[in-house]
Design a protein around this nucleic acid. Sequence first.
DNA 1: CAATTCTGGTCGAAATATCTT
DNA 2: CAAGATATTTCGACCAGAATT
Lengths: 345, 345
Amino acid sequence: MTDAPERPKVATMFDVARVAGVSHQTVSRVLNDLPGVRPSTRVRVEAAMSELRYTPSPAARTLASRRSQTIGLITAGRPDYGPSNAALGFNEAARAAGYTVTQVSMREVDTESLRSAVAMMVRHNVSAIVLISGEREVIGAIGSIDLEVPLVSLASERVDGMHRVAINQFEGGRIAVEHLIGLGHRRIRHVTGLQDAMDAGERERAWRETLTAHGFPVSGPEIGDWSSESGYVAGVALAEEWRRETERFTAVFASNDQMALGLLHAFRDAGIRVPDDVSVVSVDDIPEAAHFAPPLTTLWQDFDGLGRDIMATVLDVLGDEEHAPDRTTRVPELVVRASTAPPPA
Amino acid sequence: MTDAPERPKVATMFDVARVAGVSHQTVSRVLNDLPGVRPSTRVRVEAAMSELRYTPSPAARTLASRRSQTIGLITAGRPDYGPSNAALGFNEAARAAGYTVTQVSMREVDTESLRSAVAMMVRHNVSAIVLISGEREVIGAIGSIDLEVPLVSLASERVDGMHRVAINQFEGGRIAVEHLIGLGHRRIRHVTGLQDAMDAGERERAWRETLTAHGFPVSGPEIGDWSSESGYVAGVALAEEWRRETERFTAVFASNDQMALGLLHAFRDAGIRVPDDVSVVSVDDIPEAAHFAPPLTTLWQDFDGLGRDIMATVLDVLGDEEHAPDRTTRVPELVVRASTAPPPA
DNA sequence: CAATTCTGGTCGAAATATCTT
DNA sequence: CAAGATATTTCGACCAGAATT
């Protein structure tokens, strides 16, 4: 006996056509749901397809139609909780919609790598490119590239030339600060996220405007970069100030949970009790937040839903390029735990 | 004037051939580095290629050659720190090697979704499939699928029918437990990771065998699932036991940092001081670990290197299917912080 | 004859034009 | 002239054998 054939040969349109007793072109028509096929023959063809376990060849399809049913996903930066979960939600949604996802992840972003990633995706005839980053520099860089494909980006600020999706970070920040104000705080400090991040900007703006609207003082903020370490550094500075001043701040709004963890660490080192001396509220509600010392009051965000929003927007865009609506209306929800309390008397 | 053409037409082999004054086949030869091309004509062809900004069409290439220079990546489960960073490292390494990555992420895994993901990838003519999961059920499920493509999986236990890559978790566990023993501990408890996870199994085995080798008692372990919440639950149980018994345990080895965080929470609630009453050591060294209360002694792991190992193994496998070596020799490194100390006198 | 280079067929589907009733 | 189904050409590269030096 000779060896089995190297690769199991798969059925083609012609095989299906033969079995169904029609021409290959008719097979193509039922495949693409085109009109002009009698229901009876359509059924025959479909039967033949499933009998032969026929699956169209993506490569042939792409070559002939210049469309690949693929979406390019570019993620930039470290795999933090939010972006990772949004990417996961997007990936699942894309698959559910019948799309394949080609992913390029990069820790560091420079225009050249971005350009080559985009070029590669365009060459693969992706239907759209999705960018999960949220940093202005990255978004600006990709915006400067002449991509011949629709672009959907995670971005909480308005950006020209692309469709965007976001959770309403301004509203989230407002909720956090109002929560503190509702408890009686008025001297509320802020630790920002990465300076270049749009989400961080929106939260800072919300903090500033909410305090201003109430006529409370705006001081600071401390600059962070999302990391616990930066939160710790900010916390050390804040703790020192707290010990020095008489008109002390009584609460801090941190732009994410990791930085809040660093803050708690610094405050603990400095003998500042949370929430007795200072309240802390932050953003994300990572699964660990419930077990910080003390358990963290924070804003929960639906990252999975955000990922689905991205795919929904992609589908909108593919359906009607012009008036695809941005999806930016999801609002974070406050989860109250033990890191916030009324200010000391 | 009429509109500009819908899509900018890209150059083909024929265009290059015409400009270089050769046949398309010669272009193909220089493209694929095949022999039998005079250096002088090779230069002419290359000049023509760059002049026309020629890039070969992936679709046409795949169709004709049945190879796509693509690797399929399947990730299962929540995007935790380790797997996410390994996936990132892999993605960057794959790109550096000239491969495209098609990714399927799923939160929940069932055989049917796995099967369809694999089928889709095979239909796309991927060169190999990479699985990042580490759970026996998932690995078993994909192993039961007849995939006509090499499979490389993250797996710290030996598995038939696939190549595997892993960090040496047994050795890591040994290092952690020996660290505690070196400090004077002998009653050392363990909180496992997800029961079905191979990494968790290896660490548990290391804990058990190391204690046994020293003639110390093995009691427990508590069963966790990687989450802080499960660590907290285990911690509550351990704390209660600690209060009750006279022969108390003096240290706990937790299978990851998140669970250690839950442990710390439970111990704090119970008035057990870490490290004065009980020492805690765990695994991963997530960036937050340095800011836990107290800062965590834990095992750092090179997930980025792990991701690169995966790609290196893929390249080995593609080069020589049979004797591609598994890469399982990376060893975690102990990072000593403030959660471990000698046992109370 | 060996080293090059060329011609023509192939991959599997889509798109368009062309018959049938 | 509609519908329905059939031929033919095209997408852009790979591959084998033929033709050229």
